[in-house]
Amino acid sequence: MSYTFDHKQLDALEEVLQQGLIDLGVHCVVLIDMSGNIIVNLDNGRMKHDVYSLAALAAGNFGAVSTMAKIIGEDEFSLLFHKGKKENIHFSKVMKDFLLVTIFGKDVSLGFLRLKVTEAVEEIKKILQSQQ
């Protein structure tokens, strides 16, 4: 079983992520599916992360955290975020099958980033749902 998005969808996804997040000063954005595949990967040109491993771990981690949520009687957690000294990472579910991973430094406030991510996720939904 495989799936694909057409050129137009991928272009549109890149545009949304570029304008909504990279232009804001985010270091790296990766849209992945829950199997750990990378759909779109953008960065500010200065990042050299191993995004494939990152995607595999993010998908696994998201699955683990969702199961933890269920165990304590939550549907899902609304904030998935790790804070580091220089880099932070934020996860946001997109529909049932996708995950938006955002890596950003301390010059971007989490509160503002969350607003921008929410907005980007709405746009992404529209694009992904235009499939077929």
Binding site: S2, Y3, T4, G36, N37, I39
Partner: peptide
């Protein structure tokens, strides 16, 4: 579920 990126001409396979 392999993801095929037509834009980057890339196939990702999970084994």
């Amino acid at each position: 579920m392999a993801f095929i990126n037509v834009k980057r001409k890339e196939v990702q396979v999970k084994i």
